[in-house]
Amino acid sequence: MNLRNVLDRLDGELLTPGSDLGLEFTRVFASDLMSDVLAFTGPGELLITGLVNGHVVSTAAVADVAAVVFVQGKRPSAAVVGEARDNRLPLISTPLSTFEACIRIGSPRSDA
């Protein structure tokens, strides 16, 4: 699955224009605990979270997270988005809940 598929499935909005939508990932990790992101993710995973502070970007950058999806229509500040762009980290916002976002990404569909 790639980021274009994620945007489609989650009715998502890309917050970092210019990001590579063809970016592929094979695993998804959903958590609001950055401690868990650091402890339990592997490189290149998609992170789904409800946290929008700058530590999400710092954590993602350190842990080689592929991209971050913010749920419930949440949007980080312009400063955090700028930091993500500096780190070439794609950010997506979706109106869906974490549960619904996980279900939609996990459902077998023809676009994957």
């Binding site: 605990l33 950055m34 401690s35 992101v37 502070n53 530590h55």
Partner: peptide
Amino acid sequence: LGFGAGMG
């Protein structure tokens, strides 16, 4: 902030 889960 997303930290302090006792995993550090």
